[in-house]
């Protein structure tokens, strides 16, 4: 199956080369594309100098907008599977094949999870874990299905969801929101255990100051998922 790994990157000049090297070491015959989300550091030049395949967004559109660019690209180039993979080397590319295997087994969305096994020693800070548990319970309340690692940015989806995400994707903090919508639309989701590393450079898109805004905004999005999922177009929408 034709697979594309989407690597969103914003100001990742220190780590992007290692991320791609790590990815190439563990995978074969899988395309990748870095989405440079209007970085203001040297990320773009580093991509050019190291022959990294990348799409350059002229302005910063946010993590959701960057990932959606990848889905639009995947849709345009007829990929069967798209995998989100962070540009900060937090994700371990060894697990990419496990994600692909589950898509081939018929799941629509496969999430690499830190919380369903003890594979990952890094499980984020206590306050974030609490926030993630809260969002996970909220998703259970709305969709009646349990997903543990709702903020994981390491996930794979099939063609149907590539088409859906290319047209409908939240611009900021998109992961929990998209999980709720996908569940509401009755797509099949599976979580598999993966190992994640602590980020060694760059900045997380969620810092302490905006975490309250994050929780309120994401909670609202999850609660609205039923309405939004019905209102938004299906995967057959035209690009």
């Amino acid at each position: 199956m034709k697979t594309l790994v989407i690597v969103p990157a914003y100001n990742e000049e220190e780590i992007i080369v290692d991320t791609i090297a790590n990815f190439k070491k563990n995978t074969k015959n899988i395309d990748y594309v870095v989405i440079n989300d209007g970085s203001i550091d040297n990320t773009k030049n580093i991509c050019i100098n190291n022959n990294i395949n990348f799409i350059d967004l002229s302005v910063n559109v946010g993590i959701g907008g960057a990932v959606q660019t990848g889905y639009k690209y995947a849709k345009k180039h007829n990929y069967d599977i798209a995998i989100q993979f962070d540009g900060d080397n937090q994700h371990d590319s060894k697990y990419i094949n496990d994600l692909i295997k589950e898509i081939e087994n018929g799941y629509d969305l496969v999430i690499g999870s830190r919380y369903i096994d003890d594979l990952s020693e890094f499980k984020s800070t206590a306050s974030r874990r609490m926030g993630i548990k809260f969002l996970s319970s909220l998703i259970k309340l709305v969709t009646h299905k349990k997903v543990y690692d709702v903020t994981s940015g390491f996930r794979a989806c099939n063609k149907k969801l590539i088409n859906y995400f290319a047209n409908n994707y939240s611009i900021d903090y998109p992961e929990p929101d998209s999980i709720a919508k996908v569940l509401k639309k009755n797509y099949k989701i599976k979580e598999i255990p993966v190992k994640m590393n602590e980020r060694i450079s760059g900045k997380s898109s969620i810092n302490f100051l905006n975490s309250i805004y994050y929780m309120i905004k994401v909670s609202l999005c999850i609660l609205n998922a039923t309405y939004s999922a019905n209102k938004e177009g299906s995967e057959e929408d035209e690009y």
């Binding site: 350059d56 002229s58 559109v61």
Partner: peptide, 15 residues
């Protein structure tokens, strides 16, 4: 609209 234009422009440039 700006996000959509930015995304489409970037994909066109890449292609």
């Amino acid at each position: 609209k700006i996000i959509k234009l930015t995304q489409e422009l970037a994909i066109l440039k890449k292609d």
